[in-house]
Design a binder for these strands. Structure first.
Length: 484
RNA sequence: GGCGCAUUCGUCUAGUGGUUAGGACGCUGGCCUCUCACGCCGGUAGCAGGGGUUCGACUCCCCUAUGCGCUACCA
């Protein structure tokens, strides 16, 4: 028997930016396709014309792309396929699997409210042909409902295993609204049939839609696809991930400076665990190891702390050139470099990145933590000054350092370090007593990477200039003057 | 209210009848050290509760609790 090609789809509705939950659904679909030599398709579910926004479509697509995913066919827009859906509705009507319902929205709401029932009464299910014709003649608006047969509906979910629902629990749901538009349930099934989708991988919130859709497939004489429902993504409080949990949009994480590989990796880890203990994985490795049946059934809490860790790990193993590419626009934005000196500063940038990438959690950190690589500090961290530049003796130490720096021919970190340590010895003080002030003078900060490497990079002239500036501006007394 | 699904350290998870319940993040003690990170060595903390089944249950069954989802002419 020839197994038909695996085809999956990600089907967002453009009513908001792509959020982390949706992104994970997309990722699992994509991973499954790529791992099985299948097709990954995109479908925009915009049957609710009022709520759907065009701009959001582009936004969502660019987020999918940013995460490193590609799709194999042009995205399908449901809003452009109403003819197709009508064909299916027609078929259902003709085969006696659907019927017109003349109840108005208000009537239905009232019924629910008064009777404390939540299900459709089935009032229009058994209308006679005459009644139907009469209503239509009177131009009474109507929707089309799908007729649920007796029995039970069950399927073997790839993630949740066996699920079974009694058909009496399923409403005769509406497949065509009184305004003539198809509903989600119908459109999904029609499209999944047309697009030859073999596996439907989606959020757990769709479990209760599944029996309805299976019934639709059956009534249409089709074999339902294989379903795999994914546990939901929760906020730190255990509630479904939403705006009030802070950043939830993929675009927001992009702007916060998280590398896409890291976001992809972390999202993958929420509900799925690689067999080995290695958690930091490149996309290719994930494709290799990924399996649908290993997905957890439990909703997962999105933990930004672990996201940060994953992100930091990715950055520290990422190629410097790759990071540089991401960083250049950010440096430009901050006016730390410009189009004219990019080429000339390329190697310099690489060295800066190498110094910072082990500690950075995101791209923005490179900017926040590294301004001193591009300009002299304009102010000095007060706490650090109080702690380490705590007497005018320090000024004397620094003057000595300047003197010895001037004599260095081989401006290289090891040599610089030797000189500094020797100076401290000569002054009969601990190396730390000069190293800390050195850091303040050069970076303005109390923390930084290896100060000797920084000094090497920044260059002899600039370092000496910074030291001289600090010597003038930083006698402890300045900071100690009583406020008035 | 009904229906569905879930329940292993605070969080992400491994585990499929016999394990000192493993790993990771976090937190934390220490080492390294010029600071901060990184790295390394430790520590902390968990099978929701109750009944069964069984020689033996985290693992199988039932009940309860809790959480989440759906219950729209939204998707």
């Amino acid at each position: 028997m020839t197994q038909s090609k695996i085809r999956v789809r990600f089907a967002p509705s453009p009513t908001g930016a792509l959020h982390m939950g949706g992104a994970r659904t997309a990722i699992y679909n994509w991973l499954f396709a790529r791992a099985n030599d299948g097709d990954f398709l995109l479908r925009i579910e915009d049957t609710d014309v009022q709520r759907s926004k065009k701009e959001l479509v582009d936004q969502i697509l660019s987020s999918v792309k940013w995460l490193g995913m590609d799709w194999d066919e042009a995205p399908v827009f449901q809003s452009k396929r109403f003819n197709l859906y009508n064909k299916y509705i027609e078929q259902l009507l003709n085969s006696g699997n659907a019927y017109p319902c003349f109840c108005t929205k208000e009537e239905l709401e009232l019924e629910r409210k008064n009777n404390q029932i939540y299900q459709y009464s089935g009032r229009c299910k058994n209308l006679s042909q005459d009644e139907i014709l009469r209503n239509m003649k009177n131009n009474k608006p109507y929707s089309i409902r799908f007729k649920i047969p007796d029995g039970v509906t069950r399927w073997k979910d790839k993630v949740y295993k066996k699920i079974e629902v009694k058909n009496e629990e399923i409403d005769d749901f509406i497949i065509k609204r009184s305004d003539g538009n198809p509903t989600y349930q119908l459109a999904v099934v029609a499209d999944d049939i047309e697009m030859k989708i073999t596996h439907v991988i989606r959020g757990e919130d769709h479990i209760s839609n599944t029996p309805k859709q299976i019934r639709l497939y059956l009534a249409l004489g089709q074999t339902p696809p294989i379903f795999a429902h994914l546990p939901l993504l929760l906020g730190i409080d255990g509630k479904r991930l939403s705006k009030r949990h802070g950043a939830t949009g993929v675009d927001e994480y992009k702007n916060l400076g998280y590398p896409s590989d890291a976001v992809f990796n972390y999202l993958t880890l929420l509900g799925w665990a690689p067999k080995s203990n290695k958690e930091i994985l490149k996309i290719n490795e994930i494709i290799e190891k990924f399996s649908l049946t290993e997905i957890s059934k439990k909703s997962a809490v999105f933990d930004i702390k672990k996201m940060d860790w994953v992100s930091g790990q990715h950055l520290s193993i990422e190629k410097t050139e790759k990071i540089k590419k991401e960083l250049i626009p950010l440096y430009k934005k901050k006016y730390l470099i410009n189009d004219f000196d990019i080429a000339e500063k390329s190697d310099y940038l690489s060295s800066v990145i190498d110094l910072l990438k082990e500690r950075a959690k995101n791209y923005n950190n490179f900017i926040e933590w590294g301004e001193y690589f591009f300009k002299s500090p304009t102010n000095y961290d007060e706490q650090t000054v109080k702690k380490y530049w705590n007497s005018t003796d320090v000024n004397i130490y620094m003057e000595k350092i300047v003197e010895s720096f001037k004599k260095i021919d081989n401006w290289e970190s090891k040599e610089i370090e030797n000189v500094v340590r020797n100076s401290a010895d000569n002054l009969n003080i601990k190396a730390a007593q000069v190293i800390h002030p050195l850091r303040i003078a050069v970076t303005g900060l109390g923390v930084s990477p290896d100060i000797f490497k920084i000094i090497q990079l920044i260059g002899k002239n600039s370092v000496i200039a910074r030291l001289n500036k600090a010597i003038i501006e930083l006698p402890y007394e300045l900071f100690n003057k009583p406020e008035r």
